[in-house]
Design a protein around this nucleic acid. Structure first.
Length: 427
RNA sequence: GGAUGGGUGGCCGAGUGGUCGAAGGCAGCGGUCUUGAAAACCGCCGACUCGCAAGGGUCCGUGGGUUCGAAUCCCACCCCAUCCGCCA
């Protein structure tokens, strides 16, 4: 949610920010509505003030046994008027709120301008020297590798649930679990995150808080008989943990990590990445969330991203970091870094982590605040989130980068302790 | 799912129709005292919102209703606790 005061005081800045994104946003009507809302609010409050005055006096007169018939009469007249106006105010307020809830965040000034993903800017590569792994043999796709080794079963997934669901077997399932444990151990043990296991279903208020609702309901799986949605990312429950709270200054920054399964309908992605593990309705992810003071959030984004990058480095997977341009930015973000891992089987970089600063956008929606020591007024916190990393895609990257000429897959050094002694996956 | 008891300010907790945005306590802030701290004592101390300001309005789980007037009465729903049933 954007700050209504900013929208009112700096219409040009807001309009420009919105225009730099993909999608169309016309605020012309909004200003009229907003003004009307405040006009009605003024009338309502005037009547309410009079009502309060009368009520108070009736109380006093009754206490001293005086007659209050004249006041009763006035109230009888004022009551219905007030009721009508109050209803109108409520409508007006909801209309304004509906527009506000549908507006995306404004890009940070450092974000490169661009219409779509072609405008994204590469920031760095790792390893910094040379090209990413060129294999000495023809690289296979991860789905070929996985099926040959009998660790990925796409047919079984389709049969159990449908397209974009996959069954992991044997060393494949073990590798997924090893990755989860490795990532969590790294973030909790060395990067200072607190591990959390949240619910995988969330209510509407929660999804509104992080910005999935009301606008992106079609991207979510919903429970049939309850007003609950499967979470599309752990960002949703983790960030909402501070919703409706006033935190103490010393609680910040708050750093949380969670492994969860994530569920996405991929409604707009028909025909995209239909093969393999890249785009699934269900996947596992280790998420990183920071809650910070406003002045710390941009430095926090650098650290959060570095924490995610560290996973790739330790797994020795080549990657690059990209700054998303204004047109490719997500709804809630002011700034986003994507990490893209090298996939030799597909000869390209693919997103494996997305790290965003939403500043106060989500905080405002969920009323997440903190109070500075000695200060009277609470302030909005800033919230950040990033993948550290997407587990399914990391598994893909390992299969493709660690494949051997004989069809086996070597186990990355740091994962060996998590793999029960095996050093390679072979038939 | 059934029964019972509850949901009040950062926290605990009083309040059952009027002068209640709400006693009291804790925490916090300021002060007195003290070499310093603690204790004691005094004062301040909810959030949101409209307004240049003065000041106004809203908020006692949520939504309706009764009433001149609702934290207080009625209805529905949500959540929590405990017991029973069922169950990973």
């Amino acid at each position: 949610m954007l700050d209504i005061k900013l929208i009112r005081s700096n219409p040009e800045i807001v309009q420009q920010g919105l225009e730099s994104r993909s999608g169309q946003y016309d605020l012309t009507n909004f200003y009229g509505q907003e003004e009307k809302k405040r006009a009605v609010q003024g009338q309502v409050e005037q009547l309410q003030a009079r009502r309060n005055e009368i009520s108070k006096e009736i109380g006093q007169r009754k206490g001293s046994g005086e007659d209050a018939a004249d006041l009763f009469a006035e109230m009888k007249e004022l009551g219905p008027k007030l009721k009508v106006l109050e209803a109108e105010f409520k409508n007006q307020e909801q209309a304004v709120e509906a527009v506000l809830a549908g507006l995306p965040n404004l890009p940070h000034k450092d974000v490169p301008k661009g219409a779509d993903e072609s405008g994204n800017v590469e920031l760095r590569r790792w390893p910094t020297q040379g090209d990413p792994a060129k294999l000495a043999f023809a690289a296979k796709n991860h789905w070929e590798i996985g099926e040959d080794l009998n660790i990925l079963d796409f047919d079984a997934g389709a049969s159990i649930a449908g397209a974009r669901f996959t069954v992991l077997r044997g060393a494949g399932a073990r590798l997924s679990r090893a990755l989860i444990n490795f990532m969590l151990d790294l973030h909790t043990g060395e990067h200072g995150y607190t591990e959390v296991m949240p619910p995988l279903l969330a209510n509407q208020k929660t999804l509104y808080g992080t910005g999935q609702l009301p606008k992106f309901a079609e991207d979510l799986f919903a429970a049939k008989d309850d007003p609950l949605y499967m979470i599309p990312t752990a960002e949703v429950p983790l960030t909402n943990l501070v919703g409706d709270k006033i935190l103490a200054e010393e609680e910040l920054p708050m750093k949380m990590t969670a492994w969860t399964t994530c569920f996405r309908r991929e409604a707009g992605a028909a025909g995209k990445d239909t093969r393999g593990l890249i785009r699934q309705h269900q996947f596992d992810k280790v998420e990183l969330v920071w809650i910070t003071k406003p002045e710390d959030s941009h430095e926090a984004l650098e650290q959060l991203t570095a924490n995610a990058e560290e996973v790739l480095k330790r797994l020795e997977l080549p990657y690059r970091a990209v700054s998303l341009c204004t047109g490719d930015l997500g709804f809630a973000a002011v700034k986003t870094y994507d990490l893209e891992v090298w996939l030799p089987g597909q000869n390209c970089y693919r997103e494996i982590s997305s790290c965003s600063n939403t500043e106060a956008f989500q905080a405002r929606r969920m009323k997440a605040r903190f109070r500075r020591n000695g200060a009277k007024k609470p302030e909005m916190v800033h919230t950040l989130n990033g993948s550290g990393l997407a587990v399914g895609r990391t598994l893909v990257a390992i299969l493709e980068n660690y494949q051997q000429a004989d069809g086996s897959v070597a186990i990355p050094e740091v994962l060996k302790p998590y793999m029960g002694g095996i050093t390679a996956i072979s038939k």
